[in-house]
């Protein structure tokens, strides 16, 4: 499996980084449990939990029935009784089957008990399109959970962040919905060396992936790479120098980094692969217009998935999802406004 380290290199891919994060946290916190479908004997459909049941035992790593509501609810109960829990959704699309337990039971527990009860649960799973997964293996449904107070929502785009954010999420003490970009799991081009020592990436802190002075791309997940590619096209072909901000955390959102960038560029395009209507890209645009309107020299634009499901065939999928061409076009529009 791809989790095994390649000979002759210390670079780790996104999947290995997640596996390391879970292994190290399991060793660090003996009250950490892992729950999910096929995560124990098999090591997970993608291998994120590979080797963990062998190493830590069946009393720490549980193969669950196909019951997402029970997976989340059991995690909540175990958390109520002193445990920290990672609950895997085999695909993040399946999280809808556990929706009530997430938004009504888990998200609100701290609130409705006036802070008596903390629920340290990370619900994580592979997400996103571009891989031909079709309607039910391609979703980015993060807006549902950003819209449910009490949940933190994160989405790393690099191996370093995947490991650091996972560790931070497992130590946060709040319920966290953790979006892993499955198309990045085994992408060798982004594999990187990871620090030997323990580290975390704080929730609520954005990263600047490319510095620029003419416009700002605000994005996360797989579209970080599309925006970086679009920035190169804009620079080489049009002399436009774009900054790329990877927000990494949606809730909480690092607005300061966005506004600081806008202070320099005065133009912004927000890119994500969820449907446009009521999506998180719209939320970012709304905050910018509310809080940083004076900084804008052009209307903020969104590049998102069309308001459609994600279809299967390649031309259909490419048609509805954001791509480099669409991002370049939006960049030109705001730059030339």
């Amino acid at each position: 499996m791809a989790v095994a380290q390649q000979v002759g290199t210390v670079k780790k891919n996104y999947l290995q980084a997640l596996n390391e994060a879970l292994r190290e946290e399991m060793a660090r916190n003996e009250d950490l449990l892992l729950l999910g479908e096929d995560i124990g004997i098999l090591g997970g459909a993608f291998g994120v939990t590979e080797g963990l049941q062998e190493e830590f035992g069946g009393h720490r790593v549980y193969d669950m029935p196909i019951s997402e509501a029970a997976i989340v609810g059991v995690a909540v109960g175990a958390a109520l009784n002193g445990k920290t829990v990672m609950a895997e959704m085999q695909f993040i699309d399946f999280i809808s089957c556990g929706f009530d337990q997430i938004v009504n039971m888990m998200a609100t527990y701290h609130y409705r008990t006036a802070g008596e009860v903390n629920i340290p649960v990370v619900v994580r799973g592979p997400a996103g399109g571009y891989g031909g997964g079709a309607l039910y293996h391609s979703q980015m449904n993060e807006a549902w959970f950003c819209h449910s107070p009490g949940l933190k929502v994160v989405c790393p785009s690099t191996p370093y962040d995947a490991k650091g954010l996972m560790k931070a999420a497992l130590r946060d003490g709040n319920p966290v919905i953790f979006y892993e970009i499955k198309e990045l799991y085994r992408l060798n081009s982004i594999a990187e060396e990871l620090p030997e020592e323990d580290y975390t990436v704080p929730l609520g802190k954005a990263a600047i992936r490319r510095s620029g002075k003419d416009l700002t791309f605000v994005t996360y997940g797989n579209n970080v790479y599309h925006c970086l590619e679009a920035a190169e096209v804009l620079f080489k072909e049009h002399g436009i120098d774009a900054e790329v901000i990877d927000i990494r955390s949606l809730v909480p959102l690092d607005e300061e980094t966005i506004y600081t960038s806008l202070g320099k560029t005065n133009r912004v395009v927000v890119v994500n692969e969820a449907p446009m209507t009521c999506g998180f890209a719209g939320e970012i645009v709304a905050r910018i217009t509310n809080n940083a309107f004076d900084l804008l020299d052009a209307p903020p634009l969104r590049v998102t998935r069309l308001d459609t499901p994600v279809p299967w065939a390649k031309p259909l999928e490419s048609f509805v999802l954001p791509g480099v061409d669409k991002i370049v076009a939006a960049g030109l529009r705001v730059a030339r406004f």
Partner: peptide, 28 residues
């Protein structure tokens, strides 16, 4: 939490998974 009484929501049967989770933690 300290008196071992699980808080319910309006979604009925919704505390049975939590009950199972509490029991799982105790068993461990």
């Amino acid at each position: 939490q300290s008196k071992h009484i699980i808080h319910s929501t309006s979604m009925l049967a919704g505390t049975i998974p939590a009950a199972a989770g509490v029991a799982l933690a105790d068993k461990i």
